[in-house]
Structure formats: structure tokens, C-alpha cells
């Protein structure tokens, strides 16, 4: 039974790898072109990746920081020793 699951999973992975989108040819590149041609003027930053992460999708980064904050607060609550 285990090898049936293995074969099905491997076939699925091979099919997915075969059907992968060709690299560097997006279906719709309007947003990529917009960011490449406007990121330096709109955010004054050379690094387009950082300008996407902190400016165009800054709200998402705020959520990421909130996830980090929640995880650390949970770990501190569980593990911190309080002197009596």
C-alpha cells in the first residue's frame, strides 16, 4: 500500500515539474513592467525587491512583523522565569 502512495505522489510531482511554466515568460507582465520602470522614481530606492516588500506591499510586511511579535511574546510568556 505504501508504494502505491509513493508512485502516485511521484507521478504527481513529475507531472507538476513537466507542466511548469517556462522561466522568464509570464502570462501577464504588466505589474512586473510597472514595478521595473517606476519603482526607482516612486520609492527612491535602487533595490526593487525592497521597494516592493516595504512600500508596495508594506502592509504585508507589517503583518509579518506582527507574526514575529506574537511568536516571541508567546515564547517569553511560556519560558520566562519570574522571581517570587
Amino acid at each position: 500500500m505504501r508504494w502505491v502512495a509513493f508512485v502516485v505522489f511521484a507521478a504527481f510531482l513529475l507531472f507538476a515539474a513537466y507542466e511548469l511554466h517556462p522561466f522568464g515568460e509570464p502570462d501577464d507582465s504588466r505589474m512586473d513592467d510597472y514595478i521595473i520602470s517606476n519603482a526607482q522614481n516612486e520609492t527612491a530606492a535602487n533595490n526593487a525587491v525592497t521597494s516592493v516588500v516595504f512600500d508596495y506591499r508594506g502592509y504585508d510586511t507589517l503583518g509579518e512583523a506582527t507574526v514575529l511579535f506574537t511568536a516571541i511574546a508567546g515564547a517569553l510568556v511560556v519560558l520566562r522565569r519570574v522571581k517570587k
Binding site: 520609492t43 527612491a44 530606492a45 535602487n46 525592497t50 521597494s51 516595504f54 512600500d55 508594506g58 510586511t61
Partner: peptide, 9 residues
């Protein structure tokens, strides 16, 4: 350069 990006970094 970078506007608010260095501050956020």
C-alpha cells in the same frame, strides 16, 4: 535615498 524604506528597515 529610499524614502521611508531605511526607517522601516
Amino acid at each position: 535615498s529610499g524614502g521611508i524604506l531605511p526607517i522601516l528597515n
